[in-house]
Design a protein around this nucleic acid. Structure first.
Lengths: 317, 317
DNA sequence: CTCAACCGGGCGGGAACTGTCCGGTATTCA
DNA sequence: TGAATACCGGACAGTTCCCGCCCGGTTGAG
């Protein structure tokens, strides 16, 4: 009965009696220091055990008494939606990384469901298969995501520790404008005080988030998604490509994700503006779309398209 | 969630679901070695938690009924995972259709959370933006999905009302083998007694599910996902297209989703077998991939590729 | 306003936790 | 009867992180 893990469980057992205990009392019973009891209580709280504390005279710890969780009477559909949501979150990478959190949530959820419904949900999870590719992105601490979201909404600046692309560690003061989830990764975009410009950061590269004081304003019309995508697309590119596609805007939207480039409606078609490092990639994209097009610039792209046409012809014979 | 004490509690919580688990399963969930799981079980036993074990095949650990952990609350991360899961489910279409269910679940969830956590989750939902395209699929009753899953797991046949492709209504006796979610839609695949063959049905076209009696066996090695995808690819097609791509299998896998066609490794490349109704689409696809290729059949595809090459050339000048 | 409680940071020494390897045993199924 | 699958638990070395002891706060009752 002397191992720490055992003692934490013992503490839980003591508290289960329902009465309130002072730290001193608990420390005496467990045979450890008072400070340690506080740490144990912290562990229990971390796990979601609803232990309440009352400060001041006659204070003490006790388990939240009437936390009868009466509630959370979920309907069939709601329970199913939650369970599937967890699966979806994991698959898309939205909640990935903190896999344990999703597991815990599922377990707790299951426990509050009536037996029949729980069985239903189990069956569903056991049976279902998804065709969507499993995202394997670097795990992101959801806590950081939530922290940043909170600061963003409250318009409070934050200080973040960031490990840059090349592995350099730095500390930045940031006004978080928005959080964007793209291709399995979380990004935060906002005003970087040190660089004095709007910058985008990968949340999984952020090591610490500390809420700052003061407030800021988000510029009128700021679009987090567009900013992040632009930042990503901007990595290395040599050519700005502009072509007019002979199709409707709706059709184009349907086939071309916004991360590829921006679409503008014209009288005679749709202008697609995008960036490329190699023009053969752009030529392939045009060929794959299948609509007639007109190249605005760069003029070298025309040669590249002809070269592609030649290659196709050569392959076909 | 990495501290040992916390993990022991997590173990207790997993066992609390009432089901039996093997050491391997528990180790995976907790992210520790199997030996360590045994140690944890020992700790629980030390404390008087009635953990039962069954050795041999189909053995595992389970909690003796009657042991109750105090009601747990969701931790920060778990609440966030649930909230994001709902968003993910809606976005991917997994839980779509029953939008009301997801909303209800979110509302109830929110009410159960402590105020501070609720605020955090609100911030998150208000701030987050996703770049993934919003799926707009026909709403599917999640109840039907859950019903089918339950029958599939219990190996009970069902009788379904089905509105076919052309709008004809029929009633089918089905042995549900598996449920697959693909491209925003739910499918159930299984043995259709009336057609005496394995068939796939869109769940949103199913009007009623009635559990039948008796049981069935799922054929050895049956793969629901593969079956559904094959069924979909088969819809209306005139040509079977077979081409050899000069690239590696890994590269090809990376660019070509399994729903497009099947890939086979060859000494000099990768064979892609797919089906098409119109050959120009196939030609465009080849052009868009950008790898050198050789057409095996149909021979008309060569002409189509040349035509595409001509069109490209015409556009480029 | 003062006592009694909780709160939580920092620090140094050392207990104990982890993964690994291994030879066992029990149970089921072919 | 034998193979496969589980649980069982000892030994050991490396390293973590846990503990006790400081401390100066804050909160609430009387």
């Amino acid at each position: 009965m002397t191992r720490p893990t055992t003692r934490v469980l013992a503490l839980l057992e003591i508290l289960q009696t329902g009465a309130a205990f002072t730290v001193g009392e608990l420390a005496r019973r467990l045979g450890v220091d008072e400070r340690t009891v506080r740490r144990y209580v912290g562990h229990l709280a971390d796990l979601g055990v609803p232990v309440e504390s009352r400060r001041g005279r006659y204070g003490g710890y006790r388990l939240a008494p009437g936390y009868r969780l009466p509630p959370l009477m979920l309907t069939d559909d709601e329970a199913v939606a939650l369970a599937l949501g967890l699966v979806a979150g994991e698959r898309t990478g939205l909640t990935a990384g903190e896999g344990v959190a999703a597991e815990g949530a599922a377990a707790k959820l299951r426990r509050v469901l009536p037996a029949a419904l729980a069985r239903r949900v189990d069956s569903l999870l056991a049976t279902v298969e998804l065709t969507a590719p499993r995202r394997t992105a670097p795990p992101t601490g959801l806590a950081a995501v939530a922290d940043l979201a909170e600061s963003a909404r409250a318009r409070h600046p934050v200080t973040i520790g960031y490990t840059s692309w090349q592995g350099r560690v730095s500390e930045r003061r940031l006004d978080p404008y928005g959080l964007v989830f793209h291709a399995g990764r979380w990004y935060v975009t906002g005003f970087d005080h040190d660089r004095a410009a709007v910058r985008t950061f990968r949340v999984d590269r952020i090591t610490a988030v500390a809420a700052g004081t003061g407030t800021f304003e988000i510029p009128e019309g700021f679009e987090p998604t567009a900013t992040v995508l632009a930042g990503l697309a901007a990595v290395p590119w040599k050519y700005e490509v502009s072509v007019v596609l002979r199709t409707s805007l709706a059709e184009a939207r349907h086939r071309i994700p916004p991360s590829v480039g921006t679409l503008t409606e014209l009288p005679d078609g749709v202008r697609l503006v995008t960036r490329a490092e190699h023009l053969d990639g752009a030529a392939q994209m045009l060929a794959g779309l299948g609509w007639p097009f007109r190249i605005e610039h760069p003029t070298e792209l025309a040669a590249e398209v002809c070269a592609l046409a030649d290659r196709l012809r050569a392959n076909a014979t």
